[in-house]
Design a binder for these strands. Sequence first.
DNA 1: AAAATTCGGGG
DNA 2: GTGTACGAATTTT
Length: 814
Amino acid sequence: MADKILFYPIDVTYKIENEKAVIYLFGRTAEHKQVCVIDEDFKPYFYVVPKKGNEVEEKLLKIKVEKDNVISEVVKTEKVKRHFLGKDIEAIKVFVKLPRDVPVIRDVVKDWEILDNVTEYDIRFKKRYLIDKGITPLQAVEAKGDFITKQLRVPVLKADKIEPKGEDVLENPKILAFDIETYNPNGKSMDMENNPILMVSFYGQKFKKVITWKHFKTDLDYIEFVKSEAELIERFKEIVNEQKPDIITGYFSDEFDLPYIQARANKYKIKIDIGLDFSELNVKKSRRITSDIIGINHLDIFKFIKRIMGSSIDVSSLSLNSVAAELIGEKKVEVDLENLAHVWDKKPEELEIYCEYNLKDSLLTYKLAEKMLPNIIEMVKIVGMPIPEIGRVGFSQLVESYILKQAPRFNELAPELPHHRELMKRNTQTYQGAFVYEPKPGLYKDIMVFDYRSLYPSIISSHNLDPGTLGCNCCEGKKKVPVEGKDYWFCSKKKGFLPALIEDLITRRVRIKEIMKEKSSPLMEARSLSLKLLANSFYGYLGFPMARWYSFESARSTAAYGRFYIHKVIDEAQKAGFNVLYSDTDSVFLSLDGKTKKDANHFQEKINMELPGIMELEYEGFYPAGIFVSAKMGKFGAKKKYALLSKEGNLKIRGFETVRRNWSPIAKKVQENVLNIVLKENKPKKAMDYTLKVIDELRNNKIPLKDVIIYTQLQKEIDDYDAIGPHVAIAERMRQKGMPVGPGSRIEYVITKHGTKIRDKAKLPSEVSQDDYDPDYYINNQVIPAVEKIFEVLGYKKEDISEHKDQDKLSKFF
DNA sequence: AAAATTCGGGG
DNA sequence: GTGTACGAATTTT
């Protein structure tokens, strides 16, 4: 008797069993029980496109490659009709036995003269399965088959039939947040090899716990004591196994918590075998680290927020503290973390507060994941990527995943990923980008801002820009793209594949916006945001060298049309008598100059009447005052650097860099204080006085040495550096002195008066005394750069800060 | 201007 | 592993 279940897949993987590729779909049933559905009937394949008139199937079937006693061969071929970059073609599906045979066979045929193209050999097997079966992670799937016995942590159904079932999404996935605290006497620099994990916390819907291995008196019942770090790690595993989360989440856990746990477990030869198939936590180190668990979605909520939400939330830093404050209105427990190592060693009776801190971090992480869940789910639904990937990949890959998912619906064949040669070629291709109107530096009143709604997506859609519509025969000589010196045209008869997809995104979003006018919800907001982000990423995708559907001409033409349309607004605004202050890509800043808001709105309406298709110029806002600042060296206005004062009295500041950690504490401190005085108290003079006071103290070497120490982290072996920066020179000196230095070491140095190059002026803090540091360097290269942009906004010049040593001369500026 | 390097998040 | 992947800012040359 076969069983039938409805379930929601969470994680997909495959294994080779008995010389067969077996797909594993881990998920929850409609009854919220964990399950794994396996499918043994999916065959790997790729496509070849024969040149016209060539019969290639027989030849393909003869291929046999033997390597290391493994034989790869073609199992089956199948003629199919497909679209490919605007053409109707006949392709051949080439089936092989195992996924690993695909690249082997592809290697054999890649240079065959009788083929026009070989493609889709580079789509990962998991992805191939999801695309072909029409399965979207988290969305309902019906499977028929029999439950069988298998060595897994969950029941297994071997499917005979498997198909998506409606738009339904997994309700209430079980989220478990966790966080570790580590022994860390050296502040920011971390040493997984030598410093143990001191505590780990969990937070779930009805679950909270902190585990630590040093005993102290406490009444907090969620604290659990174990005897050693090794036991703590064992408990970590047990708890994950008991809790059975669908999603395990942490803040930067991809690159910190999970790799740390793994590194410490290695020390004790403990296997983190928490996968639902008993496989180990998989920490992969490439440029960025990823940590995955089979059957459980590991969600690094920091990465998701940074990538996907980054542009739509307004925080100065993406630390857990500020993000949580902004999104859920809660902050971390306030505690001196620098002191944890000391307390751990010397005053364990004071550890309780650190446990509370540890738990709160998990709680905040949990709440963030919960809050972001609609956004995460919507993105998963649209692009068809599983949760862990969503936050890790760039927008280009989100776009590509979406395109690949949609391809079967349009019967489109995917182009191959570019290889080395092609990639090099693409990397050299450049074209003129967006238009930026350089502002005249200064203070302005009554500013109206307009911008094009989704300028690039609407251009791609309205002008049908696509690699497959480029240079068609039917439209030759008709409508040309405004690219100087080039003869580009795109088909105006047949809708391109990518424009069709963009249009889909746009119309879906318009529909949602309509519904939202009646009644909004976090889900609607999330859906709308995902659709918008994706549509907005298409332009970047077209010009992204790694893209399958890369199209230099389409990207270039998009930018060209963009310039055309923004120039139209600028020109007409000037003709109508407005003063155009600034413009960047898709927005225009006008000062009213005696005209009224009504005039401006009228102007906007006139523009909109003349625009084609779905293009629209929108009203962004009105600002009573605003300042555009000058570029670094002065005479021209800087691009993308301005500050606006909103009607509500908030400052909207764009383009001012925030101070990074390799600045001296004094520079950070001054910038922070100046920002506070200026933004919160609105007292420029006070800020200036304060800055001048600090500069004066610097000049007289009165600022304590600890405030002029600069910290930089060494990224690689000292000898591997080509460019010797100050920190490299210092690292070298430390090595000569017999101090331990290597990648990851925190290098501290002070810039002194002696020497010419910065690297010669750098000295170890222990080698210098109060009078040695170089006031000029700290004034001109640290403090002034940290605040000059801010003061420029307020109407000061750099010279106002640096050249007037006594404060009397400054009074004239007020 | 181009090439090299670092930071961010995490303690 | 169905050859893979950060992105922006900053400093040095």
